[in-house]
Structures are given as structure tokens and as C-alpha cells.
């Protein structure tokens, strides 16, 4: 029959929007100023939708447990992990990581795990936030 979308369109007008307005309800006039205000606690961030269980976000590394076997380096598809032979530890460059969690699976002592942090964009790939060691 004729125009089948008319019904759904009218219904849609009375529904709550699906979009979660993240990080702010309305576009701030200056994003940098808004984020500064958030930093000092003057403004609040509209929270993102929570990540699901088993989400693969920023890697967590339990340094004490690591035995320096370098197996994770062998399976990492991105070459994101560097060995520190003197210490027998590793260093992960998150800017290269593709969040596949293959290193988690292979680690014999389970000292790596995937966290749920995902806001990792930055301009400096060697910044402190983007290196896990």
C-alpha cells in the first residue's frame, strides 16, 4: 500500500531520541574551554553509554607478575609491544595497539588484561597516557 513510512514517522515524533548526547548535551561554544571547566570540576560530562562486559579497552599491565617471557611480543599483530631485556619486562605503545587482546590470551601468568577505558585519542603517540609499562 501507498506510503508505508507515514505511521512510523508520526510515532517517532513522540519517542525519546536514541542518541546519548556525549560528552555534552549541547555543543559548547568552545570545546577546549568546556573541557578545562570539566577538569577543574566546574562543568559535568554527560556520561558515555557503559561498555559491555568483556569490552576490549586500554590494556592493564601487572608489572610485578610479568616474567618477561616475551610471548606477547610474538603474537602481537601490530608490533605494539617492546621488550625491556634488562628488567625482563615489557612496554606497550597503545598508539599502535589494535585492542585484539591476543597478548592477554597468550600470557602464561595472566598479567595483562583489557580495561574499559576507551577515550584514548591524543596528539602525541608517546604521551604518558598512551604507554603502558
Amino acid at each position: 500500500m501507498g506510503f508505508s513510512m507515514l505511521g512510523p514517522v508520526f510515532k517517532q515524533m513522540f519517542k525519546k531520541p536514541w542518541t546519548n548526547k556525549f560528552p555534552a548535551k549541547y555543543q559548547p561554544s568552545s570545546t577546549t574551554k568546556y573541557l578545562e571547566a570539566v577538569g577543574v570540576g566546574k562543568a559535568k560530562i554527560n556520561p558515555p553509554i557503559p561498555t559491555p562486559p568483556n569490552f576490549r579497552g586500554k590494556i592493564k599491565y601487572d608489572k610485578d607478575k610479568c616474567i618477561g617471557c616475551n610471548l606477547c611480543i610474538k603474537v602481537c599483530p601490530c608490533g605494539a609491544i617492546e621488550s625491556k631485556p634488562e628488567e625482563k619486562k615489557i612496554k606497550i605503545y597503545l598508539a599502535r595497539c589494535c585492542f585484539c587482546s591476543q597478548c592477554n590470551d597468550v600470557c602464561p601468568v595472566k598479567c595483562l588484561s583489557m580495561g574499559d577505558e576507551f577515550l584514548l585519542a591524543g596528539t602525541d603517540p608517546y604521551s604518558k597516557e598512551l604507554i603502558v609499562e
Binding site: 559491555p52 569490552f55 576490549r56
Partner: peptide, 12 residues
């Protein structure tokens, strides 16, 4: 998909 695999696009 995200619920079953962990992420939305690159399922791994």
C-alpha cells in the same frame, strides 16, 4: 555483536 564479541566492529 558487542555483547557477544566485546567490540562493535572489529570482533576479534
Amino acid at each position: 555483536t558487542e555483547y557477544l564479541t566485546g567490540n562493535r566492529v572489529t570482533k576479534g
